[in-house]
């Protein structure tokens, strides 16, 4: 039973480190892909500003069927 606590300690430390790596990897990913011009993340900020039902979506949802209502 004592061992479980030890395992917990190690699991916790390792998980913390893994999460830090993932998170900072994500930071790198975000800034790199923007620098390379692959993506522009800041454009998503416009989703909130330009949000009338008639305004053009920042990225259109391709799955959207054209029928209007009555679907599940």
């Amino acid at each position: 039973m004592i061992n479980l606590v030890e395992v917990q300690g190690y699991a916790r430390i390792i998980m913390t480190i893994v999460l830090v790596i993932i998170l900072y990897g994500y930071i790198l990913h975000l800034y790199r892909s923007e620098k390379k011009g692959e993506r522009d993340y800041e454009k998503y900020g416009k989703i909130a500003l330009d949000d009338d039902i008639t305004s053009t979506p920042v990225e259109k949802n391709p799955n959207l069927h054209q029928k209007k209502e009555g679907e599940k």
Binding site: I47, P57, E59
Partner: peptide, 11 residues
């Protein structure tokens, strides 16, 4: 599921 905006806003 029936959204027009493909990307989900942060909210």
């Amino acid at each position: 599921g029936i959204r027009r905006e493909k990307s989900l806003y942060i909210s």
